[in-house]
Simulated assay, not measured.
Amino acid sequence: MLYLWLKAFHIMTVITWFAGIFYLPRLFVYHAMADDAASKERFKIMERKLYRGIMTPSMVLALTFGIAMLFTASGRVWLSMGWLHVKLALVLALIGYHHACGRLVRTFAADANRHSDRWFRWFNELPVIALVGIVLLVVLKPF
Rank of each mutant, 00 (worst) to 15 (best):
V86L: 14
L27N: 13
F22M: 13
A89D: 00
M55T: 06
V128T: 15
A130K: 05
R42I: 02
F120Y: 15
W78R: 13
R114Y: 01
E125D: 07
S80F: 12
P25G: 07
M12I: 15
F9Y: 10
H98T: 04
T72L: 08
L131E: 01
A109D: 15
W83G: 05
R52Q: 06
A112W: 02
R103M: 13
T72M: 13
V14W: 03
T16L: 13
F18T: 02
M59S: 04
W119S: 05
W5V: 12
S116Q: 11
L94C: 06
K49Y: 03
L2W: 09
R106K: 15
A109I: 06
M69N: 10
R103L: 10
H98N: 05
G102M: 06
R114H: 11
V60D: 00
K40T: 07
F65P: 06
A89V: 12
K7Y: 07
V14F: 08
Y23M: 08
T13C: 11
G20Y: 04
Y30P: 03
D35T: 14
E41L: 14
F22R: 06
L63E: 04
F65A: 08
L140F: 13
G96Q: 05
T64A: 15
F143G: 15
V132F: 08
W119D: 02
L27G: 09
G53V: 05
V128G: 02
D35C: 09
T64Q: 00
G75D: 13
F143A: 08
M46P: 04
H85W: 10
V139D: 09
F9G: 00
A38Y: 02
S80Y: 12
N113F: 07
F123L: 11
H10N: 05
L136R: 01
